[in-house]
Design a protein around this nucleic acid. Sequence first.
RNA 1: UGUCCCAUGGUGUAAUGGUAACACUCCGGUUUUUGGUACCGUCAUUCAAGGUUCGAGUCCUUGUGGGACAACCA
Length: 559
Amino acid sequence: MSDSTKATNFIEDIIEDDLKNGLSTDVLRFRFPPEPNGYLHIGHASAICLNFGLGEKYNRPVNLRFDDTNPAKEEAKYVAAIQKDVEWLGYQWDHLCYASDYFQQLYDWAVQMIKDGKAYVDSQSSEEIASQKGTPTEPGVDSPYRNRSVEENLALFEGMKNGEYGESEHILRAKIDMKSNNMLMRDPIMYRVVNKAHHRTGTDWKIYPMYDWTHGESDYIEQITHSFCTLEFLPHRELYNWFLDQVVESDKIRPKQREFARRNVSHTVTSKRKLQKLVQAGIVTGWDDPRMTTISGLRRRGYTPDSIKNFAASIGIARRENIVDMNHLEFHLRDDLNKKADRVMCVLDPVKLVITNYPDDQVELLQAENSQEDETRGYREVPFSKELYIEREDYREEANKKFFRLKNGKEVRLKNGYIIKGEGCLKDEAGNITEIHATYDPDSKSGSGTEASMRRVKGTLHWVSAAHAVPVEVRLYDRLFTVPSPDTDKEKDFMEFVNPNSLEVITAMAEPAMKNLKIGETVQFQRMGYFCVDPDSTDDKLVFNRTVTLRDTWAKLDS
RNA sequence: UGUCCCAUGGUGUAAUGGUAACACUCCGGUUUUUGGUACCGUCAUUCAAGGUUCGAGUCCUUGUGGGACAACCA
């Protein structure tokens, strides 16, 4: 699809309109402004892709700016984690910025606003201020301190800054309109006293600016042209513009805030509070648990940056509420991994298969292609012998025509090996199959070019040689929630929808070549799915996470 | 009893007054040494009622439904 024919979204339309109306492409500048108070999740990933994607589209810079105005909640470790996540997605920011770098400028502007009669110090309790604020349907009333003199305001504000007052004794408010329909315009708070050390400015500041006062001015300082945020900030736009009005100079860029609907993914939660609850309740092992839709969790699960970017691009952007089906995400994951992952053979639920007419001590090294999608990935050797493991579900003593796998009297191909015929099986007292017997056709070796090897058989099984098999731990992950939208039920807590079977740990039998895999590497276990090496792996034991299964039309047929 | 935002197949998004389309899902088929991939096909869409217009998913009005707004959070 060429750019000229590609449909634009409303965000791009806004930019295009501005360019048409005289804004120069050279001044375009965007930003991604996270608060460093938690880990980024799939929703943030979409926002990152949106802003950095615009930077790529217009070949213009994008800043990473930490909105760090609340030392009570923010920590340096989140700053580091967020940078890692953005880099992992493959984006490079132009400037690394912090709202805290603008504290002095913000303070100076606030002083000027006091002098201009646009801001005042209020000395009431939080409760009093709240009660005067009114409700969405009733106007507020003016604070008794609203008309303090400029001198008194200046002195008090200076005192706040110098730490002469405790928290909540005084605050600085903008003087706007207590009767506004927009509650955010009812003399919003600009500064409060916070007696906590800030992760960057330490104890230099006793007062901290609020979001509304900080955000637009930060955009202005960085000369951001377009400041995109989620819909919940739509009512803030009026205030964003009012604050900008107090400081903009006509020869500078005036940033424009526009809002889009945040993109939700089914079967997940993304609020930091809920994510934290999952961690604290021990439902998951941590913020980077592979079941979490945090970026760190997705990374550990084996998601690729491209799969996330492609997903974000494909779901588009709009202004209506939405819940994107997890299938979309998994489609892009499989689509990417199919191209990138090598194939290996690993038996998840092993049962012994004895090839009764194969020489007892013989071992053959068979050639196996690493990828059917990409021949340049080459071949590896896989040992073949008389005793193998195959998947328990791949054998039935008897089955109907639709069962393409191994059954008594019928032929099936062992991937990269021979064609075998089912002969019977051994069982324990309980009737469980303990050993399957089959015979092989010595002329049917894969790649030998013989007529027998070219024979068409319907089923192909993966396998590993029992004597050469490497036991590995495999963590089978499923969706964390049993319903598409766990947190929209007003009656029920989202924790009630946690999937009790979201993790199953098994020991699987891997082909020897898998011993060389490195932490983080993803491979396809042929016929089973994509799996990546977890950091919990040691020299003695590999641990795999199931990233995602393959599509399985047989499972649907069989059920 | 306020102000504001939103409404297109099951899901997500296009169509910018001119043939309602694309992707995912579902279902079916072809190919296949992965019941994978690839390819082909089927089903299915403009919240309602008025109005403007030669022509409305799009503009207007009124409803209906959903959402946001009363943190010294962002």
